[in-house]
């Protein structure tokens, strides 16, 4: 990746993280931990990889993104807002009565959301349906799905994985945000899904392991996925839950807790400093 793009993406990802903190703080609820772990990948997808048009969010040939781990909606909303799908100011309405920004993504309300999601395990199936539709109609869009590492404990994920492989959906690329933590603690302790890469390989996927905070690796993985023929790709991204906010990093307790006023100030100060350093 060229250094200008990397700098731009890093700056945007930092702003997305600030949007996550802003939204969850205003809502006094929500899921900051997994939103922060997913921020770099979502930023890359919407600002570098995907064919989308904020002025025409439903254009038929757009690439699709399905947030199967729908609880990290704050990251998706912040990404969409910064990409121009709706005003950034609206992030402050997260989870409030009358807001379009529901606790989990609602495709009927928010421009740019391709599938309603939130009940874990279901998004990947919808992504399979979209990819299959493209195969049936000869459309050349690609479908991206993001799953949580806890989410893959749901059996439906593996029903969908079988489907994707069986129908050779090489226009489907799923990403597992492997931040290692779920609500009740470490995924290894709650119900280990490891080895994640070997499981997807066994289900017939082309598998790529990356550091989910390294834009070079993120870009290389998604570019590689585009070249794979005859099978879907799974990118297993090692990430840090709460990434970018010191006191949230690697803490399961920040899965579904919003920052209070004091924590909000500290988090925004930290992210502000990161942003200033990046913009230098």
């Amino acid at each position: 990746m060229n250094s200008n793009l990397k700098k731009e993406l890093s700056i945007t990802a930092c702003k997305v993280r600030m949007g996550v903190i802003e939204g969850t703080h205003c809502a006094k609820s929500g899921h900051p931990g997994g939103s922060l772990s997913a921020a770099d990948i979502m930023t890359y997808l919407y600002f570098s990889q995907m064919n989308v048009d904020p002025q025409n969010p439903n254009k038929p040939d757009r690439d699709r993104f399905v947030l199967s781990k729908g609880h990290v909606a704050p990251a998706l909303y912040a990404t969409l807002a910064h990409r121009g799908f709706f005003p950034v100011e609206e992030l402050k309405t997260l989870r409030k009565i009358g807001s379009r920004l529901q606790g989990h993504p609602d495709m009927k309300k928010i421009p740019g959301v391709d599938m309603s999601s939130g009940s874990l395990g279901q998004g990947i199936s919808a992504a399979c349906g979209m990819a299959k539709a493209a195969k049936l109609t000869g459309a050349d869009y690609r479908v991206y799905a993001m799953l949580g590492d806890g989410e893959i404990q749901e059996g439906q994920v593996w029903e969908a994985a079988m489907f994707a492989s069986h129908y050779q959906l090489d226009n489907l690329c799923v990403l597992v945000d492997n931040n290692g933590l779920q609500i009740d603690g470490n995924i290894k302790d709650v119900m280990s899904p490891y080895p994640i890469d070997k499981k997807f390989e066994a289900f017939g996927f082309h598998v790529i392991n990356i550091d989910g905070h390294d834009f070079d690796q993120i870009e290389a993985a998604y570019k590689e996925a585009c070249t794979v023929k005859g099978k879907p790709t799974a990118i297993i991204a090692k990430t840090v839950k709460g990434k970018g906010v010191s006191f949230m990093e690697n803490q399961a307790s920040w899965h579904g807790t919003a920052p209070n006023d004091e924590q909000y100030e500290i988090a925004m100060k930290e992210l502000g400093e990161q942003l200033a350093a990046l913009e230098k």
């Binding site: 599938m115 992504a127 979209m130 489907f163």
Partner: peptide, 28 residues
């Protein structure tokens, strides 16, 4: 046959796939 999609014994996934197909303009 080209527009028949067997999902195997996996009804939950089938409903999700149908949703995705519909979101992409098909009538499943």
């Amino acid at each position: 046959p080209e527009r028949f999609i067997d999902c195997g014994i996996a009804e939950g996934n089938m409903m999700g796939v149908a949703a995705g197909l519909a979101a992409a303009g098909m009538i499943p």
